[in-house]
Design a protein around this nucleic acid. Structure first.
Length: 184
DNA sequence: TGCACGATGAAC
DNA sequence: TTCATCGTGCAC
């Protein structure tokens, strides 16, 4: 199975967010291989993007976002959930793509619609923060037989505090997919 | 050292 | 609309 190369992530974040749609996220843990099709993403463009965690600057929490592309930025939110991002662009550019929803493919138990549920079902937690996505146990790949689809876009979810950045269409999804966020 | 709140999800 | 639940970041 061919993993996406580093160069895929080392590009414009919006482009990466759009092209991650339809790709397959794979995580192997405890000898179990889990996989899901990415159907919804959000782009967080960097420190100037007021909705991005990196807009607070380089902190212990956001360190991974400032690092090299192709790594996972996993953070804990609301005392309950984890959310997973893919770090994009060259080192020093603190940008990332949030994975918001998957479609189950293999060994996924529980729902995968929403960033918190997605991580729970894929067994993704803080141990995977900073993990290289070109490793053997955690990576993204292009499916063999990909069905064609149309993409849609809209404002990001839950970032109303980000002033004009909240209005920008930086959320992308596979149009018509049953697994999309309620709010909008 | 303390405290307000969040890139959520589920219940009411 | 409210609440669970706790780490993070910033005020003091």
């Amino acid at each position: 199975m061919i993993r996406l190369p580093r160069s895929f992530y080392d590009r414009d974040t919006i482009m990466v967010a759009r092209e991650l749609l339809g790709k397959t996220l794979v995580h192997v843990s405890d000898g179990v291989r889990r996989a899901g099709k990415i159907v919804e993403t959000e782009a967080y463009l960097g420190p100037h993007d007021l909705a991005a965690h990196s807009s607070r600057g380089l902190t212990p929490r956001t360190k991974v976002m400032f690092g090299p592309p192709g790594h996972a930025y996993v953070y804990f939110i609301y005392g309950i959930y984890f959310c997973m991002n893919v770090v994009t662009e060259r080192e020093g550019q603190a940008a990332a793509v949030l994975l918001r929803a998957l479609e189950p493919i293999e060994n996924v138990d529980g729902r995968t619609c929403g960033p918190g549920l997605l991580c729970r079902a894929m067994k993704i937690d803080r141990r995977l923060n900073g993990h290289d996505l070109l490793s053997d146990d955690f990576f993204i790949t292009t499916p063999g037989a990909a069905e064609p689809f149309q993409t849609g876009k809209g404002p990001r979810i839950g970032v109303d505090y980000a002033k004009h950045w909240a209005k920008r269409h930086l959320r992308f999804y596979i149009r018509g997919n049953s697994c999309l966020s309620r709010r909008s």
